[in-house]
Amino acid sequence: MAIESAAGSGLIQKTDFLFSFCREKQPGEGEDSIAYALNECRAMLAVFDGCGGSGAGRYPGLKGKTGAYLAARAACAAWMDWFETLGPAGEPDQELLRQRLMDYLRRCEENGGEDSGSKLLGSMSRRLPTTAAVALCSPGRSGIDVTLQWAGDSRIYLLDGEGLAQLTEDDLGGLDAMQNLSADAPLTNAISLSRDFSIHSARLTMGRPGLLFAATDGCYGYFSTPMEFEHLLLSTLQSAPNIRAWEQSLADAIGKAAGDDYSISGAAFSFGSFDNVKRQLARRCDVVYRTYIYGLESCSREEKQQLWEHYKPHYERLLCRP
């Protein structure tokens, strides 16, 4: 859903547009959830990916929905509630967020009846498991101040004239983005009701125009290299006549590759217009195509690894580790 904003000087005015989609790989079986909110002081961009492996059990009291489906929505509701409590200034209260989150998850369990997977034990069993990737934005002295919050392998990215940057490190035991594409590793941390978890937090400032977005693993996890995801973002952008068309073509293109639900919640800041976004990212699109994408199909695994090694330092230039 694309939303354009008005001209002016507050956060709303620095926000060129919001863009988002939440697509199910199989109709009726989706377990992603997204949120976006914007007021004069703050913006929130968020995605949640219910973990289908450990949260496959169904709750008869909640229409037989899976723990993964419910957890993603409970986390989404908790963050939205919490966002409403944030004042115009000051540090976000992380403890209050955690309380809200646990309240919502407990309420799911209380109303859900016995989860068909609740008897499962072991290191992979989690009750009501979900990832979270949330960006909180507010106007700062030298740009947009961003607080990143995350757990699991949903990510927050920045795409600006310098290229795509992954901002949040996955909870996958230290694997980098290229290793993650082939390793398919288990999560070492995810929000759940049954096990201790961390919500990582980090801060940065966007000092130049950029697209900030949260994405679930269905968006980035089905390419042979991370560079293809950046090129897909840029090439669909360059071909789109307007925001709505870009949002649609980006979702469709990701859907052709994805083997999972795929969701994005994002915003463009400080470009001034959609045409300016295209203009300022056009050169980067060319560079990515010429340097990494042209001829990639015929590259061996080793050659792709070499290209990744070249791309990686720039892609990880703003990476925040837990």
Binding site: S54, K119, L120, L121, G122, S123, M124, S125, P186
Partner: peptide, 8 residues
């Protein structure tokens, strides 16, 4: 053990 599930 990691990566395990028990169905009792």
């Amino acid at each position: 053990w990691d990566n395990t599930l028990l169905f009792p």
